[in-house]
């Protein structure tokens, strides 16, 4: 277990290190940061002043190390446009996106795992066809269209849910459903195929041959195995959602990371863009690590060699 854990931790660290380099370089590759910061119509002399003030004239690796050494102390720099510490800006936007992502994944799991299990237990029946139909619809329907449909139905027609903002939990229901529905098909199909396999496996036959109740057979001896790839998939999808769904956040006027990223890119707010890239990369790496640890907890063959 210790070997496994240290291997996974090392991998996570390497992923974060590499993505931080990429995050850092992307900003420099997308144009002259000094020119962007100085603004349109700035003279060459102004640009040079900015370049020296912010240290853009130093070698790249020095700038990188300087940036990293500040980042690890929690200092993500200052946004020139917002005139605020990037750490504070992120602290305002991150909770909105995190709430949305977790709620959306929760909705997706709550819908897709039971449906996937039922579809696998009764293949080629009504429930299987219904879940397939739901999956195809989820995959095919653009999320903005689905979100607008929800808004019209629950916000405008029935008037039961708020259509924009992030003040209360009620505000998160529709965005979570809209975002989560998009993640549903993949999780459901993976659950279904995993369950179809595992229910034909020898150890499930043993469980049935020893008279265990159907619930125990399906959940303890079936789903526990089928869920392992689903955990990895869900971690990736949560990472994607934490990256911020620009579309969903914009439609529902949620001031989250996606929204912030989109605005910052438009105004070339380099420090913020870098910080967001880094946060997303770290989120992905940590979620993958958590998924690996969860899988190790589910399957002893992973943790005990």
């Amino acid at each position: 277990m210790l070997v496994y854990l240290s291997k996974r931790l090392l991998m996570t660290f390497l992923v974060i290190a590499v993505t931080s380099v990429i995050a850092f370089l992307l900003v420099h590759l997308s144009g002259d940061p000094a020119a962007a910061m100085a603004g349109e119509g700035a003279s060459q002399a102004d640009i040079e002043t900015v370049r020296e003030t912010y240290g853009f004239d130093r070698p790249l690796y020095v700038q990188y190390l300087d940036w990293v050494s500040r980042v690890v102390t929690g200092d993500l720099g200052r946004s020139t446009y917002l005139r605020a510490d990037v750490t504070d800006v992120l602290a305002r936007h991150l909770p909105v996106t995190a709430t949305l992502g977790v709620c959306a994944l929760g909705f997706a799991l709550a819908l897709s795992i039971p449906l996937g299990v039922l579809a696998a237990l009764r293949p080629n029946t009504m429930i299987d066809r219904f879940s397939l139909w739901l999956a195809v619809a989820g995959q095919a329907l653009p999320s903005f269209l689905f979100a607008l449909g929800l808004m019209y139905l629950f916000g405008v027609y029935l008037r039961v849910l708020p259509i924009s903002g992030s003040e209360t939990w009620w505000h998160f229901i529709m965005p979570s459903v809209a975002l989560g529905y998009y993640a549903t098909p993949a999780i459901m199909r993976l659950t279904r195929s995993g369950m179809l396999d595992v229910m034909l496996s020898d150890h499930v036959r043993t469980a049935r041959a020893y008279g265990l109740s159907p619930w125990r057979v399906v959940v303890r001896h079936g789903l526990r195995h089928a869920i392992i790839p689903v955990v990895s998939l869900a971690a990736v999808q949560l990472g994607f959602m934490l990256g911020g769904s620009i579309v969903i956040e914009t439609i529902f006027s949620l001031k989250g990371i996606g929204h912030l990223a989109w605005e910052s890119i438009q105004r070339a707010d380099i420090e913020v863009i870098q910080a967001i890239l880094l946060v997303i990369a770290v989120a992905y790496a940590v979620l993958t690590l958590l998924a690996d640890l969860l899988n190790a907890a589910l399957d002893p063959r992973i943790r005990i060699s």
């Binding site: 043993t206 020893y210 008279g211």
Partner: peptide
């Protein structure tokens, strides 16, 4: 009734012991 009998009155031993037990428990 089948479930009550299986494992209690009738028990079964399978061909492949490598896969007949649940690896997770």
């Amino acid at each position: 009734r089948w479930r009550q009998l299986r494992g209690d009155r009738i028990a079964m031993i399978f061909q492949d012991p490598m896969t007949a037990l649940d690896p997770c428990y």
